[in-house]
């Protein structure tokens, strides 16, 4: 096997290899820290954590699972975007096309849908766990607020995506779900005091969201852009803040 050791050594000592990988895989304390601090993804973590914070029965891993669900929807969502046109006359046909003709189309669509539901459930359980352990207490108060914003964004992501299949389920769920817009006091045409403000079905907060008086082709494009571009971008920004704060404040735990 000496030839193999030679080859390995030649590869790992070559300037190309060393320009990519800056440290080896030895299990030394120094290397363990470099594994985390030298890696852009892993350094979302501190290089050392308190022992209890690594245990599933403390964290339920729910924050991580929420983020994983987000990543699954991003990856599968990009795949779906290749085949889907947010135009009323094509959207439904594209769904059928995607389900029956595209390789792995149905699997990708299913994973996208179920991961979106899973993300809503996971984010609720994450919130519940954080409440149970009192992890929102100082110095982490603001990160809880960021978390609530992320919860709302999760629901909005899921809700805007609900319209895109452009089937009966989609438009009526969105119609019902956004009726709250039309009932908003002062801003919606069916809300209290609407007549004093002068809002009407074509000129109120729901019409602004829909791009018209009811769910229609204009709404489809709006929700598509909200779902695929705007809300994911905003969510990513808040995710960065959320993770950064955990990194700075450390994981919560009992006083030593």
């Amino acid at each position: 096997m000496s030839w193999w050791t030679d080859v390995k050594q030649q590869i790992t000592e070559s300037p190309v290899w060393q320009s990519i990988f800056r440290h080896g895989y030895d299990d030394t304390p120094r290397n363990r820290i470099l594994m985390v601090s030298g890696n852009v993804w892993l350094h979302l973590h501190p290089s050392k954590v308190r022992r209890h914070a690594t245990r599933m029965r403390f964290t339920w891993c729910m924050g991580g699972i929420t983020f994983l669900m987000f990543l699954i929807t991003v990856v599968t969502g990009v795949y779906l975007m290749f085949y889907y046109r947010p135009v009323a006359q094509y959207a439904y046909a594209d769904m059928k096309y995607l389900e029956f003709d595209m390789p792995f189309g149905m699997l990708m669509r299913n994973m996208h849908r179920w991961a979106a539901h899973g993300m809503v459930i996971a984010v609720w359980l994450h919130m519940f766990r954080v409440f149970l352990t009192g992890s929102y207490k100082p110095p982490r108060e603001f990160n809880w607020v960021v978390g609530v914003i992320l919860l709302v964004l999760t629901l909005l992501l899921s809700f805007t995506g609900y319209l895109l299949p452009w089937d009966q389920l989609a438009i009526w769920a969105v119609t019902v779900g956004s009726n709250m817009g039309r009932a908003t006091p002062l801003l919606g045409h069916e809300g209290p005091f609407a007549e004093f403000v002068g809002v009407n079905a074509l000129y109120d907060v729901r019409a602004f969201l829909f791009g018209g008086g009811e769910v229609g082709p204009h709404t489809l494009l709006r929700f598509y852009i909200l779902h695929c571009v705007f809300i994911p971008l905003v969510t990513s920004l808040f995710l960065a803040v959320h993770f950064w704060r955990i990194r700075r404040d450390g994981f919560s735990g009992p006083a030593l």
Partner: peptide, 19 residues
């Protein structure tokens, strides 16, 4: 004052298996 463990492998391993 110190009950810390290395994130790699203790936390990363748990997260990876969970994922």
């Amino acid at each position: 004052g110190d009950d810390k463990v290395h994130t790699w492998p203790h936390l990363v391993r748990a997260e990876f298996i969970c994922a």
